[in-house]
Design a protein around this nucleic acid. Structure first.
Length: 206
DNA sequence: CGGATTTGACCAGCGC
DNA sequence: GCGCTGGTCAAATCCG
């Protein structure tokens, strides 16, 4: 399903929380109240780096990958979530690499899991494929029909060891070609080279 | 056969 | 307290 590595024709909308930049670039506000996005010209996806620099020059340039460092959350999160992250991130760091599937089925771990919230970043893309080739390898671990959406939401995790980055992918009900990708967390590794496409160059430049 | 995906069940959080 | 919803788990299934 994740499969089609072919020639996706992305039209990128990257979500930021810098209203100024959004305004200047003619960004379009995205559904999550504090998450904003811009629309890059179709078939010229690489131009994304330009607005990205403008929007992210204050931080994240040393980010190893599109992990959107903790500093990058720039208000895309509601205070509660931020609070949770602050509380939970320490406990999260340095865990073993199989924190989500540790056969331990004790409820306490589940509880802890629920509290963990990483910085989130939203993309809105126009694409025929659900999963953008961002250079990372993802494993699908769930799919859910969400309310007010005609399309199911898919849940992915980065397959790299010790990397807990997750992403959600869903299509807009109003426009089934629009794909909303929400990244959660930060990659602690470089993108894998299993893709020779250049798309992930622009993604990883975040 | 091993890894990836699907899918139903379970659970926590939230609003009423 | 209860029901709804989103997020995750894990067994079953699929696929290369």
């Amino acid at each position: 399903m994740e499969g089609e590595r072919g020639v996706p024709n992305y039209e990128l909308q990257v979500s930021f929380s810098t209203p100024q930049a959004i305004h200047e670039m003619g960004f379009v506000q995205f559904e999550e109240n504090q998450v904003l996005s811009f629309l890059a010209p179709a078939q010229s996806s690489h131009q994304i780096s330009q607005p990205l620099n403008a929007a992210t020059n204050s931080n994240s340039t040393n980010s190893t990958a599109m992990g959107f460092g903790h500093n990058d959350q720039v208000g895309t999160l509601d205070p509660k979530l931020v609070n949770d992250e602050n509380c939970a991130s320490n406990a999260n760091d340095g865990n073993n690499n199989s924190w989500w599937r540790s056969s331990a089925s004790d409820k306490t771990k589940v509880k802890v899991r629920r509290k963990l919230r990483e910085p989130r970043f939203c993309f809105q893309t126009r694409s025929d494929v659900d999963v953008l080739d961002d250079g990372y390898k993802w494993r699908k671990y769930g799919q859910k029909v969400v309310k007010n959406s005609l399309h199911p939401r898919s849940y992915y995790r980065c397959t790299h060891n010790n990397c807990r980055v997750k992403k959600r992918v869903e299509r807009l009900s109003e426009d089934c070609r629009m794909v909303i990708t929400t990244y959660e967390g930060r990659h602690n590794h470089s993108p894998c080279d299993d893709s020779n496409s250049s798309e992930h160059e622009c993604f990883t430049s975040f």
